[in-house]
Simulated assay, not measured.
Amino acid sequence: MNTKILADSASDLSKDHYNEYDIEMVPLTVHLNEKEYKDVIDINPKTVYDAMREGKGTKTSQVSPETFKAIFTSYAQENQPLVYVAFSSELSGTYQTAKLMETEVKDEFPDAPLHVIDSKCASIGYGLVVLHVAKLAKNGASTDEIIEAATYQAEHMEHIFTVDDLEYLLRGGRVSKTAAFVGTLLKIKPILHVENGKLVPLEKVRGSKKLFPRMLEIMQDRGTDFQNQTIGISHGDDVERAEQLAEMIKEKFNPKEVVIEMVGSVIGAHAGPGTIALFFLNKPNK
């Protein structure tokens, strides 16, 4: 019996990915116009970005304990191995909730092969980790091999990204007030990264023309073995700039593959429209 892979909607994978690699997805919740929507299922990112451009507030909430308990119980009853690779615990309470429900279900089914992993990753960086282990699972890898691979990929996944307006991250509590440096009037563009699962400002670039070249310099400094890995790019409703960055990467590094996806509703509700994010491994793939 092959191990089943569970991910949540903050992985920003497409429905085609879920279907092709038999990945189960659990949605986080998006709050907009005083209504609740299940991410991916009831709302799409474009709707969220358009609302944010109009000045409307958006919020998100984690997966409910009841949802996790129902999923975990169904797999435990069938004794089906399940590995849930979770959105970074530093950006959402979803991982902690899943761990609590894993413990509850194992009280009833002590031998249930359920495993919950904190990816410490977000968006397509997280999605690339999920895709990697989903391919292993589909090819019959053992649960231990899948856990080892997910842990390695997550540990070595770099996130380099820029946002049009740090105010969105500030409102959502994703960066501190001191970290949300002001640069709009000076045409300063922030570059951020993820450190131990947290969003951390890295540096400031004056002028948008210098932004992508600088991101590629950081990629060259931190990354390795690009020809044998899949590079991820996600964007906040700005596919033109995402494709521009992809072409620059292909020309400079000749990667095995570049995956481009829109930043989903949950992360987009905090990062805002115009976000461009780049993901790659800083060590060779095992």
Rank of each mutant, 00 (worst) to 15 (best):
Q77G: 09
G223C: 05
G207W: 08
Y21T: 05
H132Y: 12
G127R: 04
S9T: 13
P110V: 02
I267T: 14
V263Q: 11
E243C: 02
L281V: 05
D111K: 08
G236D: 10
V63F: 04
E36C: 07
Q77A: 05
A180Y: 12
A150H: 04
F279S: 15
N44A: 04
A179F: 09
R174V: 10
V194I: 15
L169I: 08
K99E: 10
L32K: 11
M262I: 12
M262C: 13
G93T: 08
M1P: 06
V40T: 14
S9A: 05
F181V: 14
V182F: 13
I260R: 10
V130P: 10
I160H: 00
V200Q: 15
K252L: 10
C121K: 07
K252W: 09
E36N: 14
L114V: 01
H270P: 14
T3I: 03
T67F: 01
E20W: 01
A122C: 14
M52Y: 00
I276E: 11
G183Q: 08
T3W: 02
L82D: 02
S176A: 12
K4V: 07
S61P: 08
D8Q: 05
K46D: 12
E148N: 06
E158L: 02
T94A: 06
Q62G: 07
S142P: 05
N19E: 09
G173A: 14
G140S: 03
T29G: 06
Q77C: 01
E217P: 02
H193W: 13
G183N: 06
A122I: 12
D50A: 07
L100G: 07
S89I: 08
K256Q: 14
E247W: 06
E66Y: 06
K189D: 09
Q229E: 03
E66V: 03
M157L: 02
D238K: 10
P45W: 00
K209C: 09
P255R: 09
P27N: 09
M157Y: 02
L281M: 14
E203R: 13
L114N: 01
L128K: 04
K15S: 09
K209P: 08
V259S: 14
G268E: 11
M1L: 07
Q229W: 01
V130G: 09
H17N: 13
D225C: 03
S9G: 08
T73A: 01
H31Y: 13
Q244P: 00
P201K: 14
I231D: 01
E108I: 09
H270N: 15
L211G: 11
G232C: 06
R241H: 12
T3R: 06
E243Q: 13
F226W: 03
K256R: 14
A154S: 15
K120N: 15
L136N: 00
R53T: 11
D118M: 03
F253A: 03
S9W: 03
Y21C: 04
I188Q: 11
V133E: 07
E148G: 01
V105P: 01
A76H: 02
R222I: 01
L202F: 13
N33Q: 11
